[in-house]
Computed example of a mutant assay.
Amino acid sequence: MSVDMNEDANTALNETDGDGAAGEERVVVWRGAGVGFSALDVDDAELLASWRVDPVAAHHIGFWPRPLSALRERIEQHVEDNERDDFLVLRPDGTPVGHIALTDQSQVDGTAEVELLLAAPYRGRGYGPAALDALVDLAFGELPMHRLTASTHTDNAPALAVLAASGFTQEGVARSACLHRARRHDLAQYALLRPEWERLDRPHAWDA
Rank of each mutant, 00 (worst) to 15 (best):
D4C: 14
M5R: 08
D8K: 05
D8W: 07
A9G: 12
N10F: 10
A12C: 04
L13G: 15
L13Q: 12
N14K: 09
E15S: 09
T16H: 13
T16V: 11
D19N: 09
G20V: 03
G23C: 13
E25W: 08
R26Y: 04
V27K: 15
V29N: 06
R31V: 09
A33H: 12
S38P: 01
A39H: 12
D41R: 11
D44W: 11
A45W: 06
L47R: 01
L48I: 06
L48Y: 01
L48E: 02
L48K: 04
A49P: 10
S50Q: 09
R52M: 15
P55G: 05
A57W: 07
G62W: 01
G62A: 01
G62T: 01
P65F: 01
P67C: 11
P67E: 14
P67G: 10
L71V: 08
R74K: 11
I75S: 04
E76M: 13
E76V: 03
V79D: 06
E80C: 07
D81P: 04
D86M: 01
D86V: 02
L88I: 02
D93K: 07
G94F: 00
G94K: 06
P96A: 05
I100T: 06
A101D: 15
A101E: 15
L102R: 03
T103M: 15
S106D: 15
S106T: 08
V108L: 12
D109N: 14
T111H: 14
A112G: 01
V114Q: 06
E115P: 02
L116S: 00
L117F: 04
A119N: 05
A119C: 04
P121M: 09
R123F: 12
Y127D: 06
G128H: 13
A134N: 13
A134W: 07
L135Q: 13
V136F: 04
F140V: 08
E142F: 09
E142T: 09
L143A: 09
R147K: 14
L148F: 02
T149W: 09
S151E: 02
S151D: 00
T152H: 02
T154S: 01
P158I: 00
A161G: 03
V162W: 02
Q170W: 00
Q170F: 01
E171T: 10
A174D: 15
A174N: 14
A177W: 03
L179T: 08
H180G: 13
R184W: 15
R184A: 11
R184Y: 06
H185W: 15
D186A: 10
D186L: 03
D186C: 13
L187V: 03
Y190I: 04
A191H: 13
P195G: 08
P195L: 06
E198D: 13
R199D: 15
R199L: 14
L200G: 13
D201T: 05
R202N: 09
R202V: 00
H204V: 11
W206I: 07
A208P: 00
